[in-house]
């Protein structure tokens, strides 16, 4: 594949290196002249200097025949613009943007960026996973929407324990996709299936429905 990387800082450099050693054709675009020189020294002539959010620079980089454009600068505005130019002007099939500020993630996807990568969200979800008392874990966002996959453990004394799935009303835009019991055994949410204590419920939901879902599944009666 031919892959263009916009921004060759820490992330861009390692991505470039990994893709090169996997045998892909890679071209990086770096604006900072010092970083540019350092990359030429380290990786050879796989980098051009310029502003990767600029249509003329992307054209020079051969965006017209690129299979993917990966924008990983430290500026969200540049990452968005690079992906939008790649998509609209050069019809690049796959655009991937690093999102420095997590609030931009859903906007970027709405605006046509195919894949968003947020380091902050990733670190947060790791923290959530490692902290056992955390009641809701964000597993990952679904592409092309603001929906996300979440995991919620059912407390031993929750009101839903022992109840069939269909008897519990879920918030809008929410779907239970899997139940995993305390031994790690998965089962599908078919009719008649019951919520058991210490089940992990894996569900698709939206940011606005998330709190209601958590409340329904973890509420303790009385």
């Amino acid at each position: 594949m031919y892959i263009i990387i916009v921004g060759c800082g820490k992330v861009g450099y390692h991505v470039a290196q990994a893709l090169l050693s996997a045998g892909h054709e890679v071209l990086a675009i770096e604006q900072d002249s010092q970083k540019y020189a350092a990359i030429v020294d380290a990786l050879g002539s796989v980098v051009i200097s310029g502003d990767g959010a600029e249509a003329a620079v992307l054209e020079e980089a051969g965006a017209g025949r690129a299979d993917a454009v990966i924008a990983v600068t430290g500026q969200d505005d540049d990452n968005l613009m690079a992906c939008q130019v790649a998509k609209l002007r050069f019809k690049v099939a796959k655009t991937i943007a690093l999102v420095n500020n997590p609030e931009n993630e859903s906007l970027f996807r709405k605006l046509g960026v195919d894949v968003t990568v947020s380091q902050t969200s990733m670190i947060l979800s790791h923290i959530e996973e490692e902290l056992p008392e955390h009641p809701l874990v964000h597993l990952f966002p679904l592409p092309d929407s603001d929906r996300r996959l979440v995991g919620i453990p059912i407390p031993r004394d929750a009101a839903v324990v022992g109840k069939p799935l269909e008897s519990v009303t879920l918030p809008p835009d929410t779907l239970i996709v899997l139940l995993i019991d305390a031994r790690g055994e998965p089962r599908l949410p078919t009719e008649g299936e019951l919520f058991n204590a210490n089940d992990e419920v894996v569900a698709v939901t939206t940011p606005s429905a998330e709190a209601a879902l958590l409340h329904i599944l973890t509420r303790v009666d009385g």
């Binding site: 505005d77 540049d78 968005l80 613009m81 931009n104 906007l107 605006l111």
Partner: peptide
């Protein structure tokens, strides 16, 4: 910065 204007405007 033009791309900051574009991000703000699209947001």
């Amino acid at each position: 910065r033009d791309s900051r204007n574009a991000l703000a405007a699209q947001k």
